[in-house]
Each structure stands twice: as C-alpha cells, then as structure tokens.
Write a protein that binds this DNA or RNA. Structure first.
Length: 890
DNA sequence: CCGATCACG
DNA sequence: ACGTACGTGATCGGT
C-alpha cells in the first residue's frame, strides 16, 4: 500500500509525559484517589479519562503509547548530565506506572518501550513510518515533539490541565513562532533546556533564539556567519558556547531511526477486553467508569446501564393510589434554566421506594389529593433545592410544606468544594449512578431543550426523585458524623424557606426614577465622550481596555505603570497615578464611573423588573466557600453606596405601599467581634466590651499613643486597614499596597498589632496548624471548609490556603450569625403580627419595608433580635436607619 | 468563554 | 526567593 489510506489514522501518545500531566492535574485530590489496597490512582484515573476522550475525538484505527525505558539512553552516553537534575518521580506516581500497562492491555492498545531510547524516539520513528500510509496525531505534554510536525503529523501539546491542548501543524508553528518544524531543534540547541539539563548558549532564551533563527535559519548557518556579526556580548557568548550549541542540538534531535522491534502493523487497535477493563476499574475503585460500562446478563445479552425503575405517568386515575399511605416521599419539580421566578416548570415527579410517578401536566397539582399532600405539614417530603421548590410551588398556587430533607443543602454543608447544582453530578460524588445529569438530558447552551419523548423526561424526573430518596440516609449520617446536624436542621433548612419568602416578596423599584437617571447619565456620557475623543485626536471605544491602552500609552505616550497578560493595565490605580499627566485621564475615570452605573445598575436593573414593579433576586445559598449568601439576577448585594453619584441609585428602591418606609439594620464590625471572640484576645475583647471605637483603639496600639485624642483621622484609616488585613490573612506587602506605606512600615504595624493583641497572633498560628492537621477549618456553627492546598508544595497555593484558613472561620461565623438572626426575625415578625417584611440581606445588614407606624417597633425589635442571635464573649452592636427610599435609610 | 474592570461586604 | 490581601456578580471586549 503506497497511497495514504483515508480510513486509517495513527494516534501516538507520549506515555510518561501524559502520566505526569495526569498526576499533577489531580495532585490536590491525591488523598481522595486511593483504592482498597492503598494504591494512589489519580494519574490512572485522569489518564483513563484522557484516553476515552482522545479515542472518541480522534477515532484512530491505530494507537500506540510509548514509554521511556530507563534512566540511561543514547543521550546520556553523549552527555552524562542529560536529565541529571530531574527530581525523582514522586513515589505516589511511580507506584501507578505498572498499571498503565494493565489499562492499555484491557483497551487493546499497544504500549512499547525500548532500551536506550526515549518515548520521543519511538514516536518519531513510527510517525516517519506512517508517512504515505496514514495520518498521525501525536499527543504529549512536551513541546519538543513539535519538531515532528509535518503535513502528515499533527502534534497536540497539553497546556494547563489535561484537556486543554494546542494543536501544532506546520502552518501553526510558522504563525506562532515563525519556525519550520526542524528549526525547533535549532531553537533548542541555542536555548538549551533546563528541565532536561543541557546548556545551550549563555543568555540565549526563546526570544533571542527566535531572532537569530529568523536571520540565519539554522545553528550551522549561524556559526558560518558568526564572525560577520557586530561586536556584542551575544556574539561573544555564541562563540564561547559553540560546542554547547551543537551538542544541545544533537540532544534535542528526536531519533526517527530507532531500531524498533515493532512496526506500524503492530499498532492496530484490538477490541476492548471488557471483562479485563471491568476488573481494572473494580481494582482501582473507579465507580463512575464502572457505571458507564455496558453490562450483560447471564446469557450475554446487553442490559441497561442503570438499574430499572418502576415509574409511570401520573393520571387522575392512579392519583389516589399514588399517595395512599403516609410514607416519606421525595418530590421533584424542574425548570430548564435557572430563574425560577420567571420560568414555568416542565414537569414533576414523586414517589417512594416502590413506585415513582411523573407528569408534565401542571394542572394535576391542583387535584385535591396531591395538593393536600403537598401542603400537609405532617407529610414529609425530600427534595433537591427546597428554596427553588418552594418558590415554584407558590407561583403555581400549590404551596409545599414539610420539606424535611434537601439534598442540595446537605451536600453543600458536607463539602463546599464538591457541591453542584446538577443533581446528577452531585449524586456521582456519592457514588450513585442511577440518574443522569441535567446536562445529559436537557443539553446546554442553544441546544438546551425539553426531551422530545415525554417518557425520557418522565424517567429523568423520576430518577432524580429516587436519587434523593436513596441518598438521604447517607447524607444525614455524614452530617451527624461531622456534628453538622444542627447547622442543617436549625439554620440552613429553615433559612431556605425564609430566603424564599424574601425573594417572593421582592423589592419595588421606581423605574421612572431610573429612566430619568438614564437620560441624565446618557447626556453626561456623550459630553465626556466628545472631550475624550478630542483629547485623543480621534474616536475609539473607551470601554475597550486594549484600545484605551493604545491611546494612552502609545499615542499620548503616558508612562506605563503596570502591565498585565493582555497588555497595558488601565485600572483605576494606574489611572489615578496618571491624573496629573494628561487631562484625558480624569475624563476617562469619570467616564468609567458613570458608564458602570449606566450599564450595570440603571440598564441592568431596568431589564429585570417584573410586571409587579419589583425585582426578585435569587439568593444562592449553596455557592460560597465561606457560608455567605450571594445574590443574582439581579445582584442586590452590590448596589453602589461609597460614591455619592452611585449612591443615588438607591433612591430607586422604594417601599411597595404608600406611607411605608425602608428600614435597615446592620451589624457594626461583626467580623472583628467574631475575631475577638474566637481568638479569646482579652485586650480586643475589653475594647469591644467598653464600647471603644475599635479602629481608634487599634490606632493607639500600633502608633504607640496614650490617649484617643491623639488619634488623627489618617491614623484611624490606617488602623482600620490593618484590622481588615488581619481578617483577610495579613501580609506586610498586601497592607503596604493597600494603604500606601512602605513594606517595612507595614511589617512594623503588624508587629505592633500582634504585641497589642497577642492572642490574635496565637489564634492565627493555631488555625493554620489545625487546618494542616485536619484538612479543614470550621465556623462557630460547624460550617466546614476543606483546604486541600494547605499542604501544597506550591508556595502560592499553600499561602492562599493559609490565608483562607484564617479568614474563613471569621467570615463564615459572621455569616452564621446573620443567618440565625434572619430565621428568628422572620418568626418574630409573624408572632408580633407585623406587616413589616424582611426583603434583603447584604452580608451584615438586613433591609425591611414597613408601614410608617411600625417603624418605632422595628427600631427596638430588629436590633434586639440581631444582637441576641448568638452569644459571643463580646457584645454584638446593631445600628438602624429608615427613610422613604433605601437611599434615605442611612 | 475568558480576562479586565469595578460594584458591594 | 517566592508574590500576595478575604468573599462575591455583571458587563464589556475580544478571541
């Protein structure tokens, strides 16, 4: 066969390089990936996923995985130190290496290694053999292999992670580096390679190498003309290191004539040995992989992957029977998207162990038997996302009560990292595979849709309901084991209902006020715009950081203060430093500020006002890593307040009835009070107990003052920043940058701080040590955050985890406190028969609307409920305000 | 779909 | 020597 066979395709994998990538991709989850025998399996797991993806996407007829044979190769014979500085393969990876062969054998894929040669050479030799016979795709983590790129061979290099690949063709190589494939070798010759430990030419890196090759084409030609070069350090280095350059080039050259004992014919893919693969997955404890394997019954006939589920469509006829007893049942109601305040449900399901029912007829919910069951507070229901379920049912006029178990909430509390809003994905975390993901059933993006076959939807809904039912005992047990049952029962579960009520209540927005502002801002914007174009000498998109950068730093030649990945930074900090350099800068700052208000807050809010003139945000209760809420669609937790122009947006948030007011209460320095409590620092506690201004108190400490009167506003500002810094997990650099002092001064502040509050220092050290020891930190209510990076060898990752260990118990405990207050508050409003409604939560503040007549009551009631939510070793202080609009409640 | 920017606690 | 504050969401431009 001399012509390339259109139907054939060879996939060549660089085994060692991909195993490394796979290992480090899940390095942080190393401990989670071990099998029954204690063998680590993370690299095997990732590699096996990688292989599945590659086989599916490339559809090769021939595959070979090449491995390095050992430490010594023909290259080490040429150069002793070749790869000499490589650190030893981690033991957790070495122990996995033999099993790569087991996996590949089960897949019917050839693997090969050859004494004295590296995987690269095997790949190169086979790629050459395939020319004219079949196209080749090489997959590796090593950029050197791009020298094999040709019209017949594409080289795919893993960037970060495992699935992000860069595909090199000769054209791409030319475009990206301006090199031909063989010039890659010349480049390596000039640069050398630190990881393979061969030298190259002194001071020549990628940029210089590319420049030299653009001019001379190859190492050989370069040295033929080196004497003609102008005198320079570079010329000197080139001459001195000539030998290195040639040696390195030789070392970098892949041997495409390796004496392989196999040939192309041996790479043909063999059928998968399913029994062997199942055995491998079992040995490695890859449950998700096992679940995807086709199963056969005793006669060898294919069986469905998932266990069968007795489910039927709900009808008027079987309704009575479906709810005949008072057993615990789970209930599911789905929408396609996220916004349950707008979308209509596509169907629902419920059932118990024996029988599952689904329907797409929402009218059935009105049937008395079903409606009563839903509403009956004595009939327990298990759900996934009780807040969403509650809101949908309220909107349908068929309220639901007694949601005694919420799978989403429970799993969030158990591990905020592994949580997902997709029940199918979440179930997999608990080794449950009898349910598909929403992604699989509904699709994503433009393709997201209700399944065309009603029974498919019905089965999915029913399986979800069953998954909740089946997983409930396990999750409840784990909550108990973690000492989190109280957090679940007394805080998160009841809070979901309170949040649902707040979301349903919504807050009224005065759209006329917003439209007026839109017109005003529109005028201002076009005025500034004209001035900016005048300054620049031409029109451009001011909102494009790229175009703005060109105008400021190339055309107007302003000094470059900071750069980022994509080019010049044009952030506020940069622009503020340039203010005196050119009048355009101030105008851009103003333009940015107004345009932010216009697009995000004015236009953004107008877009999401409902026909009831209100906005109904959704609080995400299972998202943040600390236990805080977040708010979306719209986000009502970041409405402007700091700048006067932005603050006016709050004038558009008004009560829903005339003669009502907006009432607001907020905790004063709640996070620092939590710190005083958890650290047990007597000095800090004393300051709070005496009602001192804590920032002034800190200022006295770090500036060594004796009397509060000596504290200047600027000292207080700096002390306040230091207090924040402590809460965030302090560093002298961070503090110095934030308040514009030297790093040395910042370090001195911190030292003085710790001297004054010694138990804070102890607390910080202890919490980091504790996090290292147990792998997680906790809040006062036992909310957990796992910190796998705390043991990372990567300085950045580890440092981040350490700061998180300090911050999370503080931010998270503050979140616990206001959550308790909200639950108590809602109870009291009802108990006191007040018309007042709790509408919003903004981390440390609660916002209400109430008849003017109830304001005096709230002024007493709200602070008392909030400050007694939990009992700390320091008092909680609450401040209140009210007015005609949110703006006026200050 | 990601990064830059900027709004909040 | 490393390279930094903690937690979020919306909008925009550009690939």
């Amino acid at each position: 066969m001399s012509q390339s066979d259109q139907n054939k395709k060879l996939l060549l994998l660089d085994g060692n390089s991909l195993a490394f990538r796979a290992f480090f991709a899940l390095h942080n989850s190393l401990d989670k990936f071990t099998n029954q025998e204690g063998l680590h399996t993370n690299a095997l797991y990732t590699f096996s996923n990688m292989l599945d993806n590659l086989l599916a996407s490339e559809q090769p007829t021939n595959v070979l995985v090449a491995f390095d044979a050992g430490k010594t190769t023909f290259r080490t014979k040429m150069f002793d130190e070749y790869k000499g500085t490589r650190s030893k393969t981690p033991a957790e990876l070495s122990e996995q290496m033999p099993y790569f062969n087991t996996l590949l054998d089960a897949y019917g894929i050839t693997h090969y290694q050859l004494a004295d040669y590296e995987a690269d050479d095997i790949i190169g030799t086979l790629a050459k053999e395939a020319v004219g016979k079949m196209p080749v795709v090489v997959v590796t983590g090593d950029r050197d292999l791009t020298q094999l790129t040709s019209d017949n061979t594409t080289v795919k290099v893993n960037r970060k992670g495992v699935n992000d690949v860069e595909a090199y063709t000769p054209a791409y190589l030319q475009e990206k580096l301006g090199l031909t494939p063989t010039q890659i070798i010349d480049m390596k010759g000039l640069m050398g390679d630190t990881s393979d430990n061969y030298p190259g030419v002194t001071k020549v890196g990628e940029k210089t190498a590319l420049k030299l090759l653009a001019e001379y084409g190859s190492v050989e030609n370069l040295y033929e003309h080196v004497d003609e070069m102008k005198k320079s350090k570079l010329k000197e280095n080139l001459i001195n290191d000539k030998e290195n350059a040639f040696l390195s080039k030789k070392l970098a050259t892949i041997n495409v004539e390796a004496p392989l004992t196999i040939s192309l014919a041996d790479t043909e893919r063999q059928p998968v040995d399913e029994a062997a693969l199942v055995q491998f997955y079992q040995q490695m404890n890859f449950k998700s992989k096992l679940a995807k394997m086709p199963q056969n019954d005793e006669n060898g006939a294919a069986m469905p992957k998932m266990t069968e589920l007795p489910f039927v469509e709900l009808t008027e006829a079987n309704l009575e029977r479906a709810l005949a007893d008072k057993k615990q049942r789970s209930f599911v109601i789905d929408i396609l998207g996220d916004n349950y305040h707008v979308e209509m449900p596509i169907g629902f399901a419920f059932g118990t162990d024996e029988q599952w029912y689904y329907s797409t007829d929402l009218g059935l919910l009105e049937a008395p038997v079903l409606k009563n069951w839903l509403q009956d507070s004595k009939q327990p229901k298990d759900v996934f996302d009780s807040k969403k379920t509650m809101v949908l049912m309220e909107r349908l006029g068929t309220p639901i009560n007694a949601m005694t178990f919420d799978l989403l909430l429970a799993s969030y509390l158990l591990d905020t990292n592994d949580n997902s809003n997709d029940l199918g994905i979440l179930a997999q975390q608990y080794d449950y595979f009898d349910v598909q993901t929403d992604l699989e059933v509904y699709g994503k993006g433009a393709k997201r849709a209700v399944p065309t076959e009603q029974a498919v939807l019905g089965e999915h809904l029913a399986r979800k309901a069953k998954a909740i039912y089946d997983l409930r005992p396990e999750l409840l047990k784990q909550l108990q084991d973690n000492d989190q049952d109280q957090l679940y029962d007394e805080i998160e579960a009841p809070l979901a209902i309170v949040l649902g009520q707040m979301e349903l209540a919504g807050i009224t927005v005065d759209s006329q006020r917003l439209q007026q502002m839109q017109t005003d801002f529109g005028k201002t914007l076009s005025e500034i715009e004209a001035l900016i174009y005048e300054d620049a000498g031409h029109e451009f998109n001011i909102n494009s950081p790229k175009q703005l950068g060109t105008v400021l730093f190339e055309e107007l030649k302003l000094p470059v203060i900071k750069k980022n990945k994509t080019g010049y930074s044009t952030s506020v900090e940069v622009l503020e430093q340039l203010q005196s350099a050119h009048p355009i800068v101030q105008r851009i700052l103003t333009y940015r500020q107004i345009s932010k208000l216009q697009s995000t807050y004015i236009k953004g809010l107008l877009k999401v006002i409902h026909p009831d003139h209100k906005v109904h945000t959704r609080y995400l209760q299972t998202l943040t890593q600390t236990g805080r809420l977040s708010s979306v669609d719209p986000n009502l937790q970041n409405i402007p307040i700091r700048l006067p122009e932005g603050r006016k947006i709050r004038q558009a948030f008004v009560p829903s009835h005339p003669d009502w007011e907006i009432f607001s209460s907020d905790y004063s320095q709640v996070e620092l009070r939590v710190l005083a409590h958890v650290s047990g620092d007597k000095n800090m506690q004393a300051a709070f107990k005496s009602g001192y201004d804590i920032h002034a108190h800190t200022a006295m400490s770090i500036f060594g003052l004796n009397d509060p009167s000596e504290v200047t506003p600027d000292m207080r500002r700096q002390a306040k920043a230091t207090n924040f810094g402590i809460v965030y997990g302090i560093s002298d650099y961070g503090l110095s940058k934030n308040i514009g002092i030297s790093r040395k001064q910042a370090a001195a502040f911190i030292a003085a701080y710790f001297e004054q509050y010694p138990d804070v220092k102890t607390y910080i050290d202890d919490i980091v040590a504790l996090a290292k020891e147990q792998g997680y930190v906790e809040t006062i209510m036992h909310r957990r955050r796992y910190l796998p990076d705390i043991k990372s060898k990567n300085f950045n990752l580890r440092s981040f985890a350490e700061r998180t260990a300090m911050n999370t118990p503080i931010q998270g405990s503050a979140a616990d406190i206001i959550k308790v207050a909200m639950i108590n508050m809602q109870k009291r409003l009802q108990a006191e028969n007040l018309q007042a409604k709790m509408l919003l939560q903004v981390h440390d503040e609660l916002i209400f609307e109430a008849p003017a007549s109830e304001i005096p009551i709230l002024e007493k009631l709200v602070p008392s409920v909030m400050d007694s939510a939990v009992s700390l070793d320091v008092p909680l202080v609450v401040e209140s305000a009210h007015g005609k609009t949110w703006y006026d409640a200050k």
